[in-house]
């Protein structure tokens, strides 16, 4: 049971992380990349939570909360200082 759950969640989260990294690479705009890196951070948090649940410990719980805080500060900061450097609008 433990191995099945671990393998299944590992495959799912790997696919999800690969998709998020593709979106970070493709863009096309800065805000898309910020959004995708936020999703990637959520996937890392999900992996930490699954490790805690399967192995029955709470060592990563503080790290999980800290990750949420860092993602929040990061995306708010980038969103605050983003500016439009493209020539024409609406070609995202």
């Amino acid at each position: 049971m433990k191995d099945i759950v671990l393998i299944a969640t590992a495959v799912i989260l790997t696919l999800a992380a690969a998709g998020a990294i593709v979106r970070i690479a493709v863009g096309p705009s800065l805000l898309d990349r910020v959004l995708a890196s936020d999703v990637l951070l959520g996937i890392v948090g999900a992996a930490l939570a699954i490790d805690m649940a399967v192995n029955r410990h709470l060592n990563n719980l503080v790290l999980l909360v800290a990750l949420t805080l860092i993602g929040f500060i990061g995306s708010v900061t980038v969103a605050r200082f983003v500016s439009d450097r493209r020539g024409q609008a609406n070609d995202s």
Binding site: I12, A20, D32, V39, G42
Partner: peptide, 29 residues
């Protein structure tokens, strides 16, 4: 627990699929 964990991981996959398939920033968000 196993069902919860697999469903929770699938939610992350759903977010990524939406991120890849939707056309503009608002719908991706």
């Amino acid at each position: 627990t196993a069902v919860f964990l697999v469903l929770g991981a699938l939610m992350s996959l759903t977010a990524t699929i939406g991120l890849l398939r939707f056309p503009d920033l608002m719908s991706r968000m």
